[in-house]
Every structure is written in structure tokens, then in C-alpha cells.
Amino acid sequence: MNETVVIRTNGLSKTYEGVEALKPLDLTVTANSIFGFLGPNGAGKTTTMKLLLGLIRPTSGSATIFGMDSVRQSPDIRARIGYLPQEPRFYEHHTVRETLDFTARFFFKGPEQAIRQRIEEMLDLVGLEDKADRKVKTLSGGEQQRLGIAQAQVNYPDLLILDEPAASLDPLGRRDVLEVLSRLRKHTTVFYSTHILDDVQKVSDTVAILNHGVLAAYGPIETLLAGSSGVVYTVTLKGSTEPARARIAALPWVRDLQASEREGQSTWTVAVSDELTAEQQLLRTILVDTGLIVTSFGRKRYELEEVFTNIVEGGAHGGKQ
């Protein structure tokens, strides 16, 4: 068993009454990573999570977690996991504290003092100390989400599976969740889905994008944000750009040059085939033309939203690792 690989899926798929909710999926999630799992509604994210937890059975393929089979050894796996469902629902007659106590006792039988202390830590972690003795049914959606995050961590899991952890939270709540996720990285692997791309970009180190049940992109976030069209620079210039543009486009290591005009400035997107040469010569070659003023120059970095939108809408950007 390779402990550095926490989750591995091999052709994992799920079909409901002839509809393929998840097409064969091959994923690897390594230890102590924060793995962002993205996709539009109905893409198959929740299905994947439920398959990993053994709540539903795969139609084909398999998954291992901590080297254990997700179907045959599900209870052993779940002993090391914390899970937050997409819309957390708890027993309404329980108080917040009783919910955490109920959860903790699936893992621990004592000592009582240590269990009580763990519950207090979790209440403090999610800011529900003052609502600890309130019935779950009286909590707002955001408070239930916080309780969901607390119960998922009550056993200090080796793997946290979070389905939309920031949903129903206000901006401050979202910020807190991201902080918690970042802090947990040292001890825990986090596999989470979200629609909030900004959050993913802030905390994730690996990202997978699922679309219509198909893994559309997958890899380290830096790779995805760099794009699949190779190294690209953006240059913003003032002045007469045509001669310089023709000169640059003719260079042997320039694959493509696209220009657009806006508010008296010209923006070039220059795709190059030789990164080192481009670093050394691109800006110098442009500046040979003394009539030009370069107002910005840099390597193009895609926003995750751009990558996501391109993939979901059928664009070519992004790619599997």
C-alpha cells in the first residue's frame, strides 16, 4: 500500500437506469493535498463522493482509499474519513452538542473528558459555542453548514470529503472555511467540491474538472492555470505597433500572435515555442522600435474561471495531466 496516494480510482463509473452519471474516472489524490473537484450541476461530483464513501455501488471500475477497496472495506475506510454532505441533515431532536457527541462516538468510546473536550474544540473551530445547546432544527442554513464542517472533523480524519463546504455560508464564513482547510493540510488530505472557483484558486493544489460525467481536466492548479496552449505572453503597447508586430510574428520561435485594440492601446497575446529564448529576447526585440511604449509585459496566467468556462462550454483550454 502506498500511503502517499490516498484516493485512486480506476475506471470508476456509475449508471442510473441507463443514464451515465459518471463515466469511467481515473483519479489519484495524494496525501496532504487539497484537491478541488469542480463541475457544473449534474456533472457527477456528488456521485463520485458517494462512490468513495460506499453509499452507492459502482457500475464498473473500482476505487481504493488508503489502499483499501471502497466497496469491500468501506467501514474501515470510513473510520478514517470525515464527510460533509452537500445539504447536511442531522437529527432534529438533537442539539448541536449532541450531534457532535453522536458523531464522535462512532469513533471513540472514551474517555468522557477527552470526548467532551474534542466537542468543545470543534464548537470553537466553527464558532458555534453559543449555540451548542440549541436544537439542530432551530439553526439557520449557514449554521447547519458549520455544524457539518465540525462533525466532519470530530475524529481528526486522515481524509476529509467535503461536498460544497462553502455553500450557504456568508463571505466571512467562507473565508473561515478556507482558513480551516489550509490549516488542515498538514495533517489531512482534503477532497472537496465547489462551485466557487475563486476559493479553489486560493487553497487547492490539485484540481479536477468534471463535465457531464467525464473528467475534462485534471492536474496541479498551476498547470491548469498556465493553460494547454504552451507558453503565452501578453504585451500591452502604445504607439504604432504594425511594424513591430510583423517583425515579432516572423520570429521562428513565435507560434502565434494575436492583437487587439482598446482605448488607444494594443494588446498582444504571443504564443512561443521556446520559453528560454522568449524570456531573453521577446521584450528586447519589441523595444528595438523606439517609437513604442510597453505599458505591461508578462506571462499570461489564466484565471480558473476562464479555464472552467472554456472546458464546460466545450473550449480546448485545459487538459488532463
Binding site: 464513501l53 460506499g54 467501514p75 474519513i81 464527510y83 447536511p88 462512532f106 469513533f107
Partner: peptide
């Protein structure tokens, strides 16, 4: 239907 069964069975319970 509410999801509490799925929540409970995401814990180490048979």
C-alpha cells in the same frame, strides 16, 4: 429522503 441515513452511514457503521 432527508439524507440523514447517508450521513450516518458515512461514519463507520454497518
Amino acid at each position: 429522503l432527508s439524507g440523514t441515513a447517508a450521513w450516518v452511514l458515512s461514519k463507520p457503521a454497518s
